[in-house]
C-alpha cells in the first residue's frame, strides 16, 4: 500500500513539476509579450505625439492663409457681409392647409408699383403680411 502511495505521490509530483514548468514558461512568454506590447504602446504614443505636433504645425493659420491665397480663388469679404444662420429671416411661415389651398395671387395693374410694406399674394381672410425686410449685408 505504502509503495503504491509513494509511487503515486512521486508521479503526481512529477506531473505537477511539469505543469508548473509549463505555467512558468507560459508566464515568461506572456511577460515578454507584455513587455513588447508595452514598448509598442509607448512607441505608438510617441508616434501619435509626433504626428499631433506635426498636424498642429501644418494647420497653423499662417500656413493655411498662404495656401488659401495661393490655391483658392477666395476674396476677403467685409465682416458686415457675414451672418450666422440664426440671423437669416425665415424662408416662409407655416400656413394652415386651407389657407394654402385657397391662396391666390394679386397681380398689380401694369405700371403700378406695389405699395411698400404690403405683401403680394395675401391669403383670403388675412391681412397682408408686411414685407420681410431683407437681410442687409451691405455697408
Amino acid at each position: 500500500m505504502i509503495r503504491i502511495l509513494s509511487f503515486t505521490l512521486v508521479l503526481v509530483t512529477g506531473v505537477v513539476c511539469l505543469g508548473v514548468y509549463r505555467i512558468a514558461e507560459e508566464a515568461r512568454i506572456t511577460a515578454a509579450e507584455l513587455r513588447e506590447t508595452r514598448a509598442a504602446i509607448v512607441q505608438e504614443n510617441q508616434s501619435l505625439a509626433v504626428l499631433g505636433a506635426e498636424w498642429a504645425r501644418v494647420t497653423q493659420p499662417a500656413r493655411i492663409q498662404a495656401l488659401a491665397e495661393r490655391y483658392l480663388n477666395l476674396n476677403d469679404r467685409p465682416a458686415a457681409e457675414l451672418a450666422s444662420v440664426s440671423q437669416l429671416p425665415p424662408k416662409f411661415l407655416p400656413q394652415p392647409e386651407d389657407a394654402i389651398r385657397n391662396a391666390n395671387a394679386v397681380v398689380p395693374p401694369p405700371g403700378q408699383r406695389p405699395l411698400p410694406g404690403v405683401a403680394h399674394g395675401a391669403l383670403p381672410g388675412q391681412a397682408a403680411a408686411p414685407v420681410q425686410t431683407p437681410l442687409h449685408t451691405g455697408t
Binding site: 508595452r38 509607448v42 504614443n45 510617441q46 505625439a49 509626433v50 499631433g52 505636433a53 498642429a56 494647420t59
Partner: peptide, 26 residues
C-alpha cells in the same frame, strides 16, 4: 498594466480650441 503612462516631463499646452501649442517630444 496595458495603460502605459506618458513619460513626458511637462504637460501639453493647448489653445482654447484644443490646438496644440507646446508638447514634449521624444
Amino acid at each position: 498594466a496595458a495603460v502605459v503612462a506618458s513619460h513626458a516631463r511637462r504637460a501639453d499646452l493647448l489653445d482654447r480650441n484644443g490646438t496644440l501649442i507646446a508638447r514634449d517630444l521624444p
